[in-house]
Write a protein that binds this DNA or RNA. Structure first.
Lengths: 243, 243
DNA sequence: TGTTGTCAGTTGTCTTACAACATTAAGGAG
DNA sequence: CTCCTTAATGTTGTAAGACAACTGACAACA
């Protein structure tokens, strides 16, 4: 139990969210005028600088826009917000669950090996450093929907490979080794599964896959995983806002 | 010529960018301490509220983070910035050019028709409203790399279809009708080209495609295009940051 | 009729002050 | 000497007030 009684977020962040709520709840449409700074400071009983910082944040997110001397207005972008965009970092397990897939996790292989050039570069490995290569398949109702390969620097998980349970969430596992990924740089593309993977695992009907190659970083900015996630095209699609 | 002499951006926005530059130029690494607010106000000769708004913006972008009573620090995320993320809205033409593809634009068909249910919903059409359906293929060195279908409300371009040059940038065309798209809500997935498209246009070797379905909105928040862009998997991959 | 001046409303910026939190060093008790 | 307490200092969080700059509307004027 560590649910704080009072909101520990800074005043400005609370304000930002309350104003965003206000826009939604009042049913304000693009172009509608927001209350003035004077009105908002009175309403929320806060100082003008605090209010302005909150408004600036909403402005940066294109929720609102300003016209000097006229006021603040609801931006068109406020209507174009996407519920669960691909740009939010989360584990593959959580992502799949959100899509309604209760995935069974099958470990195809796990081994220690020398990294290839790409992996070594992405994980910023020293010469000679080795990686754990984890190859998994996720099934939904006995149907394969995700083929994943993860590369983890050996130094992060110094245990014997067969002492580790690889079927759970990789993020949780890394969390236990103080290396929970917090963010990533990702590249998405459309591909077919590699031939050898298809043949070894009987995945002839997998069809086109959305490949996400991502290098995941922990809170300190160090790369902890290089992941290749092949999302079965017939089962996954990701949303995002562009502006 | 309407090039303003002085920077018309607000002080805060200029500050935000200058501080971001400062982090890059000084070669500050994740975890490194930024100058204090007092030092920065002196350095840039600006007030503390203005500075704090700028810093708050960088904080929202995860470029920096704050610890109350200790100072501001460079976030790990600052190193994970992606050069040209998919989340930035731009025309397909510009996007392709950036990838080094000088595309020839082939119009396969253009017609006025009744929208299907999805299109009508995405474009918020009234019953009976009609759309222009524009079907195009983009070639790079005689190789097809992009198959696009665009739906535009008929009311936006009320000209006779054969009076319009459809080979150019659709964004520029809409711009001329005061409906330039500024942002979009997009869904990406991996698919094969529809069978009928493959057959009609001899695209058997196109392979897997990255499909981006996006509804584009103008500055006022009105939908102006519903676009289906099939990016040939072997030629395109998009980057983004997740956090 | 068209231009200019004035005023109120709104956002942009600055100054000053104090509160809250973190770190460090000094001092005292054992 | 070691450990704890306490105070001092540095840093960010929040508040209040003031003036500048911009917009829009209307009155005054030529």
């Amino acid at each position: 139990m560590d649910e704080p009684l009072r909101d520990t977020r800074t005043l400005v962040i609370q304000l930002r969210d309350r104003i965003a709520d206000l826009i939604r709840d009042e049913g304000l449409n693009p172009g509608d005028k927001l209350p003035t700074e004077a009105q908002l400071t009175q309403r929320f009983k806060i100082s003008r600088p605090a209010l302005r910082e909150a408004l600036k944040l909403l402005e940066q997110d294109s929720i609102i826009y300003v016209e000097h001397g006229r006021g603040r207005f609801v931006s068109a972008m406020s209507a174009v917000q996407v519920d669960r965009p691909i740009t939010v970092f989360e584990s593959v397990t959580d992502m799949a669950r959100h899509y309604g897939y209760a995935t069974a996790n099958k470990v195809l292989s796990v081994a220690e090996e020398a990294p290839d050039a790409t992996t070594a570069e992405q994980l910023r490995l020293q010469p000679g450093e080795r990686v754990i290569r984890l190859e998994r398949l996720r099934l939904h109702k006995d149907e394969p929907i995700l083929y994943c390969v993860d590369f983890i620097p050996r130094s992060i998980i110094p245990l014997r490979l067969y002492d580790v349970d690889w079927t759970g969430s990789l993020l949780d596992l890394l969390d236990q080794h103080r290396s929970r990924p917090r963010m990533s740089a990702a590249i998405v593309s459309a591909v077919m599964l590699p031939d050898d993977v298809v043949e070894r695992n009987d995945l002839r009907d997998f069809g086109p896959a959305l490949l996400i190659r991502e290098t995941c970083f922990n809170a300190a900015g160090l790369p902890v995983v290089y992941a290749l996630d092949y999302h079965r095209g017939s089962h996954f699609s990701f949303s995002l806002a562009r502006k």
